[in-house]
Structure formats: structure tokens, C-alpha cells
Design a protein around this nucleic acid. Sequence first.
DNA 1: CCCCCCCC
Length: 642
Amino acid sequence: MGGGGGVGLEVELSRGAVAAILRMAEGLRPVLQVADSPRLAARAAAQRYRILLSDSVHSHEGVLAVSMNHLISDGSLRRGAVVRVLDYICTIVQGRRVIVVIQLEILRTDCTLIGDPTIYEATPTQPFCVSYSGGLGNHESCFLPGSQEVFGNLSCFSDQGMLDSSFGPRAEHTVCNLQYGGSCGSVLPLNTVDAKVQQLSLDDHHQNQRWTIKARVTVKTDLRHYQNARGTGKVFSFDLLDAKGGEIRVTCFNLQVDRYFDLIEVDKVYLISRGIVKPAHKKYYPLNSDYEIYADDSTFIEVCSDDDCSIPKQQYAFQQISEIENMENGSLVDLLGVVTLVSPSATITRKDGTGTQKRTLHLKDMSGRSVEITLRGKFCDGEGQVLQRHYDSGSSSVLAVKGGRISDFSSRFVVTISSTQLKVNPDFPDAERLRQWYLTEGKTAACISLSQEMSSFTRNHVPKTIAQIKDESLGQSGKPDVITVRATISHVNANNFCYPACTLEFNGKQCNRKVTKSNEGAWHCDRCVLDVPKCEYRYLLMCQLQDHTGVTYATAFQEAGTKIIGYSAEELFNLREQDEAKWEEIMLQVCRQEYLFKLNITEENLYGETRAKCNIVGVEKLDALATNHHLLEEMETARALV
DNA sequence: CCCCCCCC
């Protein structure tokens, strides 16, 4: 690949980008084998995701062809430059070649020459872990008079330097396992707390532990009373952070509550010894230890007389928002971002019928992405209200989220759970840096929301052409196929774009079955066996999709229909009654658009003949993306040149 | 030994 005069660049791609490329290459089999691009395959296998990209014009072999014309022609890149991929799109051209268009952040333009490309050896990546202390961080170890042993002095990160590398080329796909593992990438051999506790739990079943933790309390729960089969009780817990980044939770019940609840204050440093050490239930444990401590009669906690300023107040392992799509659903994440939108608090009803509060924010960071954050419960009226006030007054807040939970609905978002911590306008350097970035450039910079962007939309996607739906008998293997196609809408069944739907509740959801006019001007639902005075018009939009390989029919229901048309079905229904010309215009506009569709293909029996039935379960307008980051324009140029 | 993460 990239022979002769092609401009070779070493580029680190995010895991998502490489996965997408490999999937596209898969789709090309047997025309092209993945092995045709040994470098790509090798890197991916080594989990390094570092590949060589070449200018498409000069590339005649291999899977990849990359358009970097603009960068090269304007002289901003030279051979050997170091760049980071901010965004990318992939497409298949002429049914056999994958084009990847990437949006690069140029980190260095004047690196030493790469020379002939060589395959990289996998080396550990550095995690993006940063801790912030209120004071100056000196790293003196502290031995305590009277305690047999002090532990909890091992760092998750080697001292300084991390801050600078935090937005460097490697940060984009670093994962810091602070939340789940005792170790942090491969930088940290062992966490002290873990190491010691592990030893203790192995050879000391009698709680005559000889350990003392010197640590700062980062968070403390309210006192809670409970009642269960064993009777009643009270409980509270607090989290500890030591000078080297070790974290562990201490839980106190009943008598221990009486002894320690008032003593424990957030931000204070304590010496803690003796107690029951148990493996933590990692699923709900946001700290980096594998263990937690239960205070018992032998536990001893005292305030440390000297506030050890080498222990930070809180420790974060910030991830870039752009990385969220690559992280596991349900995992916990720390984020630092500017709040760009605050929506009012709303009451939602849980499945069991009880009510609760939610409030959504948009958070944007220097990766150029934004993500929706859902605040729940106490956060709605607490930090949520503060953020709302700032937002209403036009000031931009920086928000640090510790331990937010990654969730998936129609796209990735982050939700607070009870152990999540929020800090509005935190006073550490990165927060100030972020604010400055936002005020000078970030505010106006093109921003791709995780809920809009293609890479999120196409997460785990299988890109196909329309011809492949028939050729490969998609949907007919007994289970549905989910694919993405890039196509225009060549025709819509405009006259029957919607149907009257039942608004009653059925199985905890809106019924949505088609209703028919009953005698008294009411609507009747056959499923609910009831008459209702009002119906709701919902989309059932038959679309003819077309790409360069053929046409197919696909149905868009409410969500996809709204996205395609830009009006709700109700609005469009009313519009047709009031202004038919306008309605017609809207319907016609749809047909010039190019979209990326996510199709769910199942089998359908029609007149004794089985055929594919396509439902549009996701849709992205492609010109919106183009105005965002010009990638598609690049794509067109590249297509034309191939 | 307690919560165990919610809504579209």
C-alpha cells in the first residue's frame, strides 16, 4: 500500500475507526482479503490500532485508500508528521475499494522522518489519569508513630507528565481501569491497598490485621436506616483515597455508625486500622480496589493531625467524550466538559409506577464531541439547579463527572447513579484550560454529538449495498439482519404517510395499533377493544431507497419518519389540511436527500412468497454531517479520483 | 449486615 510517491503517514486510529474499517474490509470478501493489508491486520491484532495510511491517488493495492489531499496540498503535513484522528468515515467505492476519510488533528508537523514504514511493536499505552489536590503535591512518604505499618502509598501514575500527555496522541484510546481494576493500564504494577489487603485476606482470617491506611475521605454517604429479615439497622459508608492513588470504601453499621459518623468529614485525612476486608462486588463498586472494608469492633479511626497535602481531594481518570462510544455499556466513566445545554427537571414514571426526577445536560470537551448527561434523583435539584442558573444567565460551567454510567438507548449517553459525583466549576488546571479553550474556540467549533454522529450511529454496523439485500437473502436466515446502507430516498408513498394510532396504554406502553372510525365519531381499537375520542397520527412511511446498485422498499415508523421529514406525523397531517402546497413541497424535498439508513431486515410472507421486509430503524441525514466537518466533501473528491 | 442504578 502506498507505494512509490504516495505520502505515507503513521496515524493512530481509534479502536472504533479500525473496527469500522475492518468490518468494511470484511464486507468486501472475497474480492479483497483483510490480509491484503497486513499492516492494518497486524496492528489491530496487537491492539495497537496504529496503521499506515496513504494518499488514495497513489494507492493501488490494499484495503485502504485515504483522502488527505487537502492536508498535503496546503502544506500543513509533511512526511513524518504526527496526527490524531478526530473523526472518520468509510465507504466502499466501485464495490471493491474502501475509502476512509479522516479528520485529523495535527499534533506535530515537523517530526523526524519516518523512513520506510515498519510494523510497530505493541507497547503499553499510557492511561489518562490525573489527580488533583488542593495544594502542592509533594510525594513524601509518611510513617506514623504507633502504627505497625503504613500502606496505601502506591501511585496509579508516575508523577508529572501525565497532564501534558493527557490530550496527546495516545489519549484518545487509553482506558484507565481505575473503576474496575486494581491496576491502571500497564503503568501501575499493583495498588498498595489491594496488594496488602490481598495478603491479609489470604493469611489472616482472624482480623488481627497489622495495617493502617492513611487516606483522605473523598465522599461520605448519608446515614441510612434499613429494615430486613434480620431486623433493623443503620449504615453509612465513605470512600478513601491515599497518596498514591489507592482507593477503598469503608462501611460502618450500627455501633460503628455511632462511633464514626460524626467523626468522618469529607476532605479530611484519617488513619484507619483494623476491620473486616472483603472482596468488593465490582459491578457496583466505582473504586479501583478489589476490596472494601467493613468497620467492626476492632476498627480504629482517627483524624490525622497533619493534613497530608500529597493526598489529592479527588482523583479522576477523565476520558474524552469521543471515547465513550468505544467503552462498554454499563461501565463507569469520568468526564470533564463544558455544559452547553441544561434542560429543566422533569418527572418520569418508573416501571413500578413510582415517580422520579430527571434532567439532561449536554457536555462538550476538547475532543470536539458532546454527550448527553442524564441527571437523576438528588442531582436534579442539587447540581442540576446550579447548572441551570449558570446556563440561564449565559455563563458556561465546567462540570467534572466522576463515575457516571455509560448507557445505551438510541445512542450512547451517560447517566448519574447514586455513587456518581459531580463537581461544578472545579478548581484544577485542566478545568481552567477547558474553559479557556471553550471561550476562545470551543464554543464555535463544530461539535458532533454522540447522538448524531455517524460513528456512533454505525457502531457495530454492517455496511451493505442495496443489491446485497437481495443477493445475500438478508433477513431470511431465520433471524433479522441489521445493516446500514447509504442511499437516497427515490420515492415516498406521500399520500398514506401516516395512520391513526391508538393512544391507550397496552402492556405499559402506548398501544399504537391502527384504530378505525367507529359510529359515534370516536376511534375504535381492536386490540384494546375500546372506543377512544382521539387518536394520534403516527408515521408509516413507505420509502423507496436507491443507491448505485439498485432500489428497495423500506418502512419508516414514527421515530425514523420524524427524522426523515423533519415534522411530526401530527404536524404534517395538520399541515396537509391547511396548506397542501407546502405539504407537497416537504414531501418532494425528501427525495433529493442522501441518508445513511440502518435497516432491520426480516422475512415477510406475501401471497405465499417470502421476501425481505426492511424497516428503517435509524437514519442520518448526510448533508448535516457534511456541514459539520466536510468529510463527505472529501469523500466525494476521493471517489472522483479513484 | 445496606443500597444493587430506574424513563423514553
